[in-house]
Nucleic acid binder design. Structure first.
Lengths: 336, 336
DNA sequence: TTGAAAGCGCTAACAG
DNA sequence: CTGTTAGCGCTTTCAA
């Protein structure tokens, strides 16, 4: 592929001048610029980012690490990131951690070898060792976390108010006259899941707590096991009439289990999930849920990163987004 | 970050020797190697890929373009690609075309500026202008297409036998004693959708065609419109008892529409989709479908690309994978 | 407004 | 087995 040198030769200009044209330097006369651009066009010239990166120390690459790409939430975030970054001159590279600390560190390591200028990331559920992340911060590579954030001081982050989301979901169940709530809880070591549980409890506490019974359970996604767990639970607690699941997938899982147990949703039990996954709108009944504003989260995170890339002295930002209650059929008022 | 120079200085060796260590050259004594590695460790040395790329002309980057990342099929393919590429020393960068020719070309263009060594791609449904792709081929950058392939000669590809998949699906409906089949057809300009329709027709032709009625329709995913389309269709053709949808999403859409029309699946009508999307296993009833072996497709495509990267004279390969029938509840035999 | 020249960090002949 | 040396394509002083 033709380089800057060839263009210089053909235009009779120096390397420096040609380079200036492609860097939009104001120090080039319009005439010269036009001449260069014309020849560049003819040669189908494309700047060699590698060379520019090497020389300038700026790779123009932003690395994104997400647990999983096939996920409504994370792919929504990626779309938000793309939207903001696309016209900034930066390139995005995406890696998946598949919820493994090891793969996450491997991804970060490739990012460093690729000399990324900045990183956007959501940590895996498994991540407890932040040494690699701390190394990145020490190396002054700007990094913005979204959704799942490490418990470290002074980091840029965009998160969802999970507590509020859970609160809204639970409040909605209570408003539908549920008196005995069940929370399908996520791993409490994951901070957002703990927050969701707290939101659940606080919503009940705020209400007239004495009249409301509530309990939590965690499931495995092993159909047989969970079937038994739920069956036993409902046998012992036939008064359960409202369920708040910490995620939509597990919510759908519960919905299917309930159907097999002959428990009708929403007439016998109301169910609400969390996340507004694409399929939650396709189930029967459609599942009420909490929307996480994923595109906005990606956009905000990307904006913060770009700000830091422009000016390394930008001060730390921690944004918290408010979730939105999405009411569908699974929490509809009783027919009778 | 410390470079090879610093290591050379600290070990008293030359740049060349240090470089050889990191390139696993056999021309280094174990002692020297150990010494270099030790110092590298201390300095937390990380080779600068940009510099290596510039010098060697090899970026060690593979670009992947898919229409959409939040899609069971494509993310499965990406996982397959990652599996093969992960231990090859290459890095993967992923771009989405969002089914737009323009974004697809933009992605390819960034790939070229980033000096990718090879490309894996599935073209968007909108892509009809192959000039950019042809430019890449002319530039001798190895490219392997998967699933959606441009109609060009001499290109590496891994595709699914869509005709066979549709054939299997239709045959399955016929084996369940369906006598009047409906095909929910995709855009005929997309070759794989045309193939699926042909498979549908051929399966019927192979069977005793005289006793089988069949027809095709296309939907919009606009619920109201489609509701009307289906209603009219079933009013005019109450004998329809088997539906083959060209995709799982549209299949689920149809399933929901049928429910609202009071048409029971599978007792009144049997339904089969295509793609084995993750949600097809979570619906009520669970949707029978055709699995596309996506991980295998990704693995094969990546293997072909790596082969071409190693040896540019590798001859063109075109692999066709066989789909697999997945029988679930939506095509269960009648209860009576 | 333009040009000359140095060099980013690394690789790859070539010579020893 | 190790070292010397000349760039890869581009940016960036500095000087004109």
């Amino acid at each position: 592929m033709a380089g800057i040198k060839e263009i210089a030769k053909r235009t009779g200009l120096s390397l420096a001048t040609v380079s200036r044209v492609f860097n939009n330097s104001p120090l080039v006369s319009p005439k010269t610029r036009a001449k260069v651009l014309k020849v560049a066009e003819e040669l189908d010239y494309r700047p060699n980012i590698m060379a520019a990166a090497l020389r300038s120390g700026k790779s123009k690459i932003i690395g994104v690490v997400v647990p999983e790409v096939n996920n409504y939430f994370f792919s929504g975030i990626i779309n938000g990131i793309e939207k903001i970054v696309s016209n900034s001159g930066y390139n995005i590279i995406i890696s998946q951690s598949h919820e493994s600390q090891e793969k996450e560190d491997t991804a970060l390591n490739s990012f460093l070898t690729l000399q990324v200028e900045g990183i956007l990331m959501s940590i895996s559920t498994e991540t407890t060792n932040y040494s690699f992340i701390q190394k990145i911060i020490k190396n002054k590579i700007p990094i913005v976390f979204f959704d799942r954030v490490p418990t470290l001081d002074s980091i840029n982050s965009v998160t969802l108010n999970d507590h509020l989301g859970a609160y809204l979901a639970t409040e909605h169940l209570l408003n539908q006259n549920c008196k005995h709530l069940l929370h399908i809880a996520g791993d409490p070591y994951v901070s957002i899941f703990k927050e969701r549980k707290n939101g659940f409890l606080d919503a009940i506490a705020k209400k007239d707590a004495k009249n409301i019974k509530h309990q939590s359970v965690s499931l495995t996604t092993d159909i047989k096991k969970d079937q038994k767990t739920l069956k036993d639970l409902f046998q012992k607690n036939p008064s359960i009439d409202g369920i708040f699941a910490f995620g939509d997938e597990i919510g759908l899982h519960v919905l299917n289990l309930l159907k097999e147990l002959g428990i009708d949703v929403p007439n016998m039990v109301k169910l609400i999930g969390f996340g507004n996954a694409n399929f939650s709108n396709l189930t029967q009944p459609k599942i009420s849920t909490i929307d996480q504003e994923c595109s906005e989260m990606g956009e905000l995170a990307a904006e913060i990163l770009l700000k830091n890339l422009e000016n390394p002295n930008t001060k730390i930002e921690t944004k918290v987004l408010s979730p939105r209650l999405v009411i569908r059929e699974s929490t509809k008022p009783d027919q009778n």
